[in-house]
Design a protein around this nucleic acid. Structure first.
Lengths: 228, 228, 228, 228
DNA sequence: TATGAATGAGTGTTCATTCAT
DNA sequence: GATGAATGAACACTCATTCAT
């Protein structure tokens, strides 16, 4: 009975099996219909007792589903962001790799979205590192670097996550095309305005007092755009 | 016993009372927890029988909720869109009035979003005129007029609706600020690129009143689009 | 407001309409599923209140169904029996006309059979002149005339009624063929044995002390049989 | 936890207890009134939950009732038929043993008849080997052997079954007398007519042991039948 | 580690009936 | 003569959970 993280290997395998069954049930029938009975039937277990044996209660099972899928997604997306040459490429990588993960694991992502949509506060889901929070931080950093224009990072993060999650719920979507569109969309809407070549006053919403944008980098981006 | 639309006034009032109670229950506890029992308790009814007396079915009640809220929203938003000077102003009016409706009726919108998120296909909700479909048509028309750049109208509509609906689920949001941000965001991301041949400076916000859209220019942009 | 039997013509018509609807519901869905709600829906009534207005309670409605159909059947069958030349022809007429009535009014007979099969003692159905009682009397009379052999009239009546009622529940049956078979069957099984041409003792079950059978009539029947 | 047929002994006992209670409720109150609540009360169970725990469905419970009683009846009747010297004796044994079973287990047979009368097609009862089908086959075989006269086996089987089932619904009946009558009745109505060419006297009851059936005679009767 | 048995609360829905016009 | 509104009881069924091995 080898033990890691306080659980034997057999128990870990059982938990994983149950989590997988739960994911499939949720994705197929929705969070509301995800009962121990359904999961047990889907997993071929003789009784629901096996589930309540391995999980303290239902919310612990749901928590395990969230942690599992979120972990997988993070392990897929993060290195692709880290490999990006600069922050704008990172944004593109973020969108692209997220949509790739959705494409490759539609069931798991659907389950996640269903849970986030259906769970209530009293279900006591703890998601310390919610994707939205990560995105907010990402945009804030980009703005401090002067790569992104001035906008409310929370709003933009909300829109970004909503746009990605929406794909998971539309099974008919062409992921590749959607990805191209979304990359273009968020590139347009986040990029800093080009430095005005005349002395004309800047548009009101760009705060002149903020970190000035490096002309060189802006120019780079300009040509980059032209080349597309 | 005056009768409109085939139902007595008393019955209409009861139905409205029940629909309102259902909305509040759904917004507070979620679609999954919206049972006749909860609704009856919330509305102070003596038994759930009163609900099944006035509604054939649970799905008929949910349908009534959807029709009610969707009707209210449409009656609020549509005249504001119609009053806009041109399509880009209409887009701003769309975003703004939608967010105003969310701000003024957060409970009702939350209920609607919960239903759309939680309902499955076999719940047979009939929403002939789903908001997303309306938005798709809106963007398509704007592209034909040459006011919007080339993008996939379905993707854009998905993002637009997702962005608006997301607000309803975040009760802490500053609606006014959010509205300003979203207007700016969707203006940037939809507007047609400036004609590349003139070096003339372009105002950051194209004032629709100052620069009337001529069919000819729309045609120009058309060729421009073709060149991509 | 003309009145017969204590009820106005309009009320009589309504009652008949409701009775007809009840018959169709019972025949189609069974006695157990025959609820006021179903009847009202089938008859196109806006509420069940109309039914409970015209009938004291459910058992009165069922009683009305029984009386109606039983009356119709009696009015069809009785003259045909009365027109028969002798009792054996009357038996044939009984079987034949009963099956004709079943053929022509399958729905009504089905309803009747469903009621008799499904009703319990506490449903307080009063059928003073039940078909089985009539048949018992018929066989008893035939035996006294010496036309029928010795058998238990109750058993024979039970079998006769069961055989006829069974047809109503088998919608695929060829009524004409069934009628021919049943006539032959009950003729064979009821007819008095031919007078033994030897002095051999009669079979045990024929009580020699009972009314002697008229040789002439028995002979008639014998030739009649031979001619078939 | 010994296990037979995939169920523990305890579970089998519980199921049997519930089935027995269901039988008694159905026989006493009718199929329509057979609810989980009534069964639970009759069996002294604390809640209906115990029933739905041991049976997937109400229809599974009813199916269990049918299988149980039909199995018992078959196990009683079949060896008695098999022990009969010839087919006519088998017919007598069929009637007699059926009525004996009815006499000894009136409640169980009543329940069975109630179910068959009250169940509808959508109750999806699977009775592959319905008693009527067995009877049809029995008569067909007897005709091929030349033991039975020409008649429609389906009609005869319908009458036979209806006659037997009717007894179960008449609690006041003298089973022994009824059995004697029915045996006589179906013997008379099924037996082949005597060959018309010989003037030899024919015993009222053909003793099967005395007059062995020769294939040749069967052929004779075959042509005789063709002549009708 | 696993599991069969049991359970009370709650689901939507149907029922015949009563009340008040 | 007709009807809309209301109601308590019962229906089969599902739920997560506890008990006892």
């Amino acid at each position: 009975m080898q033990v890691t993280d306080g659980r034997s290997l057999a128990a870990q395998a059982r938990r994983a099996q149950i989590v997988d069954a739960a994911i499939e049930v949720i994705a197929a029938a929705g969070f509301a219909q995800c009962s121990f009975g359904r999961i047990a039937k889907h997993a071929g277990l003789s009784s629901t007792r096996l589930i309540s044996y391995h999980f303290e209660d239902k919310s612990e099972l749901i928590q395990a589903v969230v942690d599992t899928v979120l972990g997988e997604a993070t392990r897929y997306v993060q290195p692709r962001i880290a490999a990006a040459a600069d922050r704008r490429a990172a944004l593109a990588a973020y969108v692209t790799s997220n949509l790739e993960f959705v494409r490759d694991h539609p069931t798991r992502v659907r389950a996640l979205v269903e849970i986030f949509a259906g769970a209530r506060n009293d279900d006591r889901l703890t998601t310390s590192d919610t994707p939205r929070a990560v995105a907010i931080e990402f945009f804030r950093a980009g703005q401090q670097e002067g790569v992104f224009r001035r906008f409310d990072p929370e709003v933009m993060a909300t829109v970004l996550r909503a746009a990605i999650d929406a794909v998971a719920m539309r099974p008919d979507v062409d992921h590749a095309a959607y990805a191209v569109e979304l990359v273009e969309l968020f590139d347009r809407v986040t990029r800093a305005d080009p430095a005005p070549d005349t002395g004309a006053p800047r548009p009101a919403h760009a705060d002149p007092g903020a970190e000035p944008q490096h002309p060189r980098r802006a120019a780079d981006r300009g040509t980059e755009r032209t080349g597309r």
